[in-house]
Design a protein around this nucleic acid. Structure first.
Length: 271
DNA sequence: TTAGGCCTGCAC
DNA sequence: GTGCAGGCCTAA
């Protein structure tokens, strides 16, 4: 489910609830949702989140006294901020009860997401960050210059999170359509001009989606249970078999890297 | 590189 | 019932 814009919307909608509010209690319903090795979550009781940031699809909450919480929403993950008295939905794995009376609940039916807790001072050494490329919003064409000397297909590389962090299936297809690049394009054959176009397209698509509160296809909601509105602006994802919005050719739908992939065979040429 | 696995829910 | 889904890891 959540790619960069959705995680960013979750982060923004979460902050007003959690910043500088003491954590009164932590309840763990599913210990295996937390990735070991980890510091005891109970160490957070009595402490407060002082800042948050996002890198790619991961959400970082920095608490007082050298404690960091990393949340990954996976495919079906959600954070609910509700009064503690609200009914508990199924698949609620961890609950942080705040001194304000608000519950911050991690809900994830498919459990593809995860939670990490460790010292902030260990942040730089953590694989959760080390294996991530530059955040897609911070990406510059120069960051992809090394592609010239590497192998691989464009869509797979964009999905891998190692070159760029934050793009998933929706936003890769959108960015490729916008920059008129073929998903199976070899990365070592992309011109510098096309790399520039790609990076610009990634930024534009993500910024538009963030402004719309993200894409809700079915499940996605922010912490206030509001859906995103970007689905109506999608130009490639979900458009298989429909006319290309640029050239009216019927959009192709195939499988790339095991993911449904939509592109226009006429205006996304492969070189 | 691809296929399968992890899970549940939903459309068909 | 089958197949598919916004993620991501591994093993063949």
């Amino acid at each position: 489910m959540p790619e960069l814009p959705e995680v960013e919307e979750v982060r923004r909608s979460l902050e007003p609830h959690v910043l500088n509010v003491p954590i009164a209690a932590v309840r763990i319903n599913r210990p295996d949702f937390i990735t070991p090795p980890t510091a005891p979550l109970q160490d957070l009781v009595g402490r407060r989140i002082v800042s948050t940031f996002r890198h790619g699809k991961k959400l970082f909450c920095i608490a007082a006294d050298d404690q960091t919480l990393v949340i990954h929403l996976g495919m079906s993950g959600r954070i609910d901020c509700v009064p503690s008295s609200a009914p508990l939905p199924a698949h609620t794995h961890v609950i942080f009860t705040l001194a304000s009376g608000t519950d911050v609940r991690l809900v994830d039916p498919r459990r593809f997401g995860g939670l990490w807790h460790y010292p902030t001072s260990a942040l730089a050494k953590r694989t959760e960050l080390q294996n991530l490329g530059k955040d897609a919003l911070q990406l510059h064409a120069a960051d992809l210059a090394h592609w010239r000397k590497t192998r691989g297909r464009l869509k797979q590389r964009l999905l891998s999170q190692k070159d760029v962090a934050g793009l998933g299936n929706i936003y890769v297809d959108e960015s490729l359509w916008m920059s008129q690049l073929h998903p199976l394009q070899r990365v070592d054959r992309i011109s510098p001009e096309s790399i520039e176009k790609l990076v610009a397209a990634i930024h534009l698509v993500l910024e538009r989606s963030i402004n719309a509160g993200g894409t809700t296809l079915r499940d996605y909601r922010n912490v206030a249970d509001q859906p995103g509105q970007f689905a109506r602006q999608l130009q490639a994802y979900g458009h298989g078999g429909k006319p290309c919005l640029r050239c009216a050719t019927l959009m192709s739908e195939t499988s790339v890297a095991g993911r449904t992939t939509v592109f226009c065979r006429i205006c996304q040429r492969r070189r």
